[in-house]
Amino acid sequence: MRCEKFKSLLDAYADGVLTENESLMVAEHLQHCHVCQLRWQEVQELNRLLDDAFANFHPLPSQILRQRIKRTIFTQRLTSRRKVTVRRPAAIFAVAVVGLIVIVASLMHQPLLPSHEGHREREITESQTKIAKSEAPPKPPEPPGKPIQIPKQQFEPSTGVISNPPTVKRISVSLAARPKAKRQVAYRRAAAKPFKDNEPTGTEPSAKVVSETVETLPKAEPRTETILISVEKIIPTNPTEPVPPAMVYRVLDAPVRREITVLPPQGAIAQPISIAELTIPSLSRP
């Protein structure tokens, strides 16, 4: 019985975590108990085996792991408002490519100014009009707002190109949780007709986006998805015309087709080109 007590202490004795009194007792017992001496040898031998088992065990991760960590962390900082976990670089690529179809399209002139209201309604598709009407009933005519001027120092008259640096616009769209396989969403600029460079101005659109890229990031939370839209260049066909910042996006999400009208936040109207952060409040699935 006494040996059983010491047997339970031998591991801790080997690890040197017994109290001084306990250690002395075990040492003394080991001096004259041959059974415990054998056990003590086993304890030592097992410890040696266990230590030795990992002496040469130094598996190294692949060299790109650190880059993966770094890239993920920087991506997270970019979208720091949301928690995003990206497992592999390939996953980012796959989601970006498969998840979204980017279509280069014209900038929809959606005048916020009352004088452009009629034009806006012509341009928006029928279903958009329905949504627009249901969400925003017709307002009584208001006095014309302050015209929006493109900053002259950024406009090249010879080429008609505004040399703005690439502008990143962040749009948050809430989408209902759904199976991964069906998470393919396409966003299309909703302008029905592409605008030509030499198109006469007037009531026609006065600017267009010639190139834009859309990137989606993996879903971070069950019901949200972040889309980054980078507008590379905006060509105004008539720089004196105001460039309305409002745009219409069409979400192609089979079998549901839905249009989103992206409106700028209050106060953004004075800076139509440098597109601020826009938020689509919600897009709940029917």
Binding site: P61, L65, I69, T72, Q76, R87
Partner: peptide, 9 residues
């Protein structure tokens, strides 16, 4: 490797 990445993130 995936777990290690998740751990650091």
């Amino acid at each position: 490797e995936d777990a290690t990445q998740d751990i650091f993130v």
